[in-house]
Design a protein around this nucleic acid. Structure first.
Lengths: 168, 168
DNA sequence: TTGTCTGCAAACACTTTGCACTTTT
DNA sequence: AAAAGTGCAAAGTGTTTGCAGACAA
């Protein structure tokens, strides 16, 4: 479908900034655009790494003072952003980790059990396998997640330094 | 390598029953074979479905009375069985779910977000993708997990009845 | 003004831990 | 007898909720 465009970055479907898309989402739900929700979307949009709720909370407090939000609000807003399709949530070692999911291509992760780093990769073969398997089981696949656990290059050299967690 | 065998079921490496393997594991660790540990391995070995700690606890209490174990002991023993390579642990919707990992072939899962059922499938292509990707990132892959979320055949018919959880 | 949102404190679900007592070795 | 294991109750995590006051529409 032809999409008029005179903006630089961004691929198909990414006509709005995350903040705009969130505002749109909130409006269609009769929800309000508050200072806290704005602070949170802006902050998240400016980051490009994976993060968890506590990190976000701490970072907000470190940055411009006053521009904070309470813990419950952070959790509530993150959940809304997942609903809005802006964020992706995944659970590692018992805590939820978020990443962008708007205008980002589908991908999977390598997870280093040494330093807990997440490395993204994509392979359309995974999607093919997913669909083939789903079809075979009369299953309607909505999403998938492939997590490969192991040790990253850095941690392979400096082994046995950090305590190793459960694999997944 | 050639393995002498005059036992029926079981593939490569499965010379011992789970209980025997666990006993072996405990001995090499200077740990003791107690009534509770025995009850738990036996129970787990007799089941073939996925289960979580609370289920196991409840089931133990329902079955032959007296043959129980406390919650802390159940958690402790499950962790040991994971260590021993008898069980595999995975976290879904915030709780740990276990499955056999001894003499069982590597496989992945379809997860129904409607009824929380897990359906196993296996595809060696996943392992190939894993190894290729790991190599490309100088990563040492130790394990992987592919989880395809969606709706199973049953839940597709009776839609919108059950509340839908987070995808993964 | 009206109804939503926020922050606080308290509640939560699941899991782990300190410790006195029990049990295996 | 010595060392490890158990169960209880209590403490942890990470996350969610009830509610009174604050605020966007």
């Amino acid at each position: 479908m032809a999409v008029g465009s005179d903006f630089s970055l961004g691929s198909v479907d990414t006509a709005l900034t995350p903040a705009e898309r969130f505002a749109e989402f909130l409006q269609t739900r009769g929800k309000r655009i508050t200072r806290q929700r704005r602070v949170i979307v802006d902050y998240v949009a400016s980051r490009h790494e994976h993060f968890d709720a506590e990190q976000l909370l701490a970072d907000l407090r470190k940055t411009r003072e006053g521009a904070t939000a309470s813990r419950p609000t952070v959790y509530r807003t993150l959940a809304e952003m997942v609903d809005a399709g802006l964020l992706n949530k995944m659970v590692l070692d018992g805590r939820a980790v978020y990443e962008h999911d708007y205008g980002y291509p589908q991908h999977d992760h390598l997870y280093c059990t040494g330093c807990r780093k997440l490395i993204e990769f994509s392979s359309d073969e995974v999607a093919k396998i997913r669909d083939a398997v789903a079809a075979r089981h009369q299953f309607r696949a909505q999403s998938h997640r492939l997590l490969v656990s192991g040790l990253c290059a850095d941690c392979r050299s400096s082994k046995s330094r950090t305590r190793h967690q459960d694999r997944i």
